[in-house]
Design a protein around this nucleic acid. Structure first.
Lengths: 203, 203
DNA sequence: CCGGGAACTGCGAGCTACTCTCAGTTGACC
DNA sequence: GGTCAACTGAGAGTAGCTCGCAGTTCCCGG
């Protein structure tokens, strides 16, 4: 995510921070379930998680990011970059979005992911923050594609292709949520990408 | 936009309100130009426009909407609905987005539109609000399409098609802005929709 | 093993976007 | 022209978010 990943073995400091962040996120979601997102203040989250409000802002930046934050993004970008050597961009992205992401997500805790996504879809402010994040991801994505294929990273075509794919991915998540998480996310994502890839024959 | 449009000849009340909104928007943009979006408070806008802060919130809801608000949205939906009787959804949307919208927009004041779009693209919070608006438009859009074609309004395919088209449209605006408004918006929008319609042959 | 410096934490004060309520006013309609 | 609904402005209050400061904890070179 635009930011330089310090490629040094994580020390005690960083491990403590990550642990604290996961704990805060856990506690926050429990509070949201009880009282609703809007009625839980940062202050209460801080009290319940036994940290100071300042720390929550330092960790997450905004209240929305307490829900949205996770550790997948750099993993996904890396996986995409790797596959780009052997495959064309679309196939690589399909693979990453359908396989890598979903399996990486589910490794941790599928139920937890569903809870987070429910809030992300139902709370407009969180949804907006997610769009914003997606925009940044889209920029990284097309830079990476441009690097590997020599295409113009700022050309209209590449830009449109990228945002369309990201939008399809996000809509797949929305669909997953609205159908009560009935079908596997992988299948829905695959279906959504199919629609984009084959072009629009709707009538 | 989801809301019931009162189809009654606009009285003095409504005309005054619209006039006031346009005036506030004008004044606000001037202040933004001078001091930057973040440094202009609602209070200063209110003082400068000679209304109360309460009124600005009643009119626009949020600070971002002072920039984003305009009168095109219902016009666009109506135009789309009309064309849908004679054409397939994609062509109708192409027509509306490329012709109707751009001409309707330019009728008023192209320079003013550019200034608004500059803030919409450069201020992250405004951009997020714009995504949110686009989401709502997408819902209206696919409901309208479903009504005319009998397709499932909540099916994955229609959903993905719609958000992809909207995303392409927004990216066209972003591209227009980043290239210094060099080429006509119509052409860029047309190009963006082409990319989506023909499907993804990038490699 | 340790000492200096960097990074992180908690605290407090402060700003402003946004909400709600209430009293007063203005336009709509008969 | 009078009544009622809708709109306006004022004021108080909430909470997200920022900033600067003092104290603490970890990192790292010697």
């Amino acid at each position: 995510m635009t930011e330089q990943t310090t490629q040094r073995p994580p020390g005690l400091r960083e491990r403590k921070k990550l642990k604290a962040m996961r704990h805060i996120q856990q506690v926050a979601l429990d509070l949201f379930d009880r009282d609703g997102y809007a009625h839980v203040t940062i202050e209460r989250m801080a009290a319940e998680a036994e940290v100071s409000p300042s720390s929550i802002y330092r960790y997450f930046g905004t209240k929305e990011m307490v829900v949205l934050w996770d550790e997948y993004d750099p993993i996904m970008l890396q996986a995409f970059d790797d596959r780009l050597r052997a495959k064309d961009p679309i196939s690589a992205l399909r693979d990453v979005l359908t396989e890598v992401v979903t399996t990486a997500m589910f490794e941790q805790d599928e139920e937890f992911l569903r809870r987070r996504m429910s809030y992300a879809m139902e709370e407009p402010s969180i949804r907006a923050a997610m769009s914003r994040q997606a925009d940044e991801t889209a920029v990284d994505l097309r830079r990476t594609i441009a690097k590997h294929t020599g295409r113009d990273p700022d050309g209209l075509e590449l830009r449109v292709v990228t945002v369309a794919l990201i939008a399809a991915f996000m809509e797949a998540i929305a669909y997953w949520h609205e159908t009560g998480f009935r079908d596997p996310l992988q299948d829905i994502v695959a279906g959504a990408l199919d629609v984009i890839e084959r072009g629009l024959r709707v009538s």
